[in-house]
Design a protein around this nucleic acid. Sequence first.
DNA 1: TCTGGGGTCCTGCGGCGG
DNA 2: TCTGCCGCCGCAGGACCC
Length: 361
Amino acid sequence: VGRRVIAHVDCDAFYASVELLRRPELRGQCVIVSGSGPRAVVTTASYEARKYGVHSAMPTARALRLCPQAVLIPPDGAAYREASQAVWGLIRAELGEELVEQVGIDEGYVDLTEIEMPKAAMRKLAADVKAATGLTVSVGIGPNKLVAKIASDLEKPEGLVALSREQACERFAASSPRLIPGIGPKTAERLESMGISTLAALREAGEGVLSERFGANHGRDLYRRAHFEHDGHVQPVRAAVSQSSETTFDVDVADHAVLEEVIARQANGLCDGLRRKGTLGRTIGIKVRLADFTTVTRARTIETATNHPAVVAGVACDLFRAYDPSDPVRLIGVRVAAFTGEEEEAERRRASASRQLRLAV
DNA sequence: TCTGGGGTCCTGCGGCGG
DNA sequence: TCTGCCGCCGCAGGACCC
């Protein structure tokens, strides 16, 4: 396990930036990409809007109170996927697809270990992406994914920051543990209750104490992350694990017949996607969120993988009837997982059939 | 003022088969 | 034949990320 050089590439305010390409007259204004319903939240805010305290995941109603002059743009997933392909296609072409791992629509990692003058290479890459697509990226370079990711965030937009592990330790000693990806609100709160509110304190806590409180795996992970150690490698191809479709209603819905119609519609859309990819799933699940925000999931694994809308909708409605919530429903969703390809599934069925035969004999 | 939609991964538990 | 152990799978929930 030699020394590695990893870059994290992150598109700046991605959805908002894609919208500005189509509507350059909005440049310099507060732009918020978001649905417009009463329960919508902000997907992306332009840097101008962020100055007013608007950020992703904030309820749109609140964002508009903070920044009433903002222009609201409804999300256009197809446009963002297309822009993402342009950016990441170029990055793969320039650096070699075996060195690039895309995670999510607008970011990814590059293994620069074997590349000479990594910083210069990434400076060129950022310029090429901007020239070809009009979109800007920020880049972080470090000895592992964790440091690279934090570095890419430091000088957004259009940043390019290289950091060693030691520099990261020193620079962020007084920072909140929340700086570290993977330490979210719950973990931060637990740490706070232990008197740990900085990364230096997290390091000083020691692995033993953390493992006691968080379990061996999570504890060790927290301790290592506090030292900016991370051994995850760049994985060029990552197969999808599940696909889902969910809807939050503007007003909670109590009528189960209506909910089953929505389930059927979601199953249709999901199966369209699965068929385009030639994928089948064996596990079908539902998600139900009630008015008080309690969220329940139910799942069933069926004998034969499927991408038939009637089968998916049938199982999903079955699960819903078994759950039979008496309270109004805020969100309903359908999920398909445990994927196999079409030919794999045929093989699985042959194996299963011969097992049955042996048992029968 | 409430809290989207798309995901991933982990944990704990219970059933089951060898 | 019974029992215990172990590993795997499926399920539910939770935390987290963009």
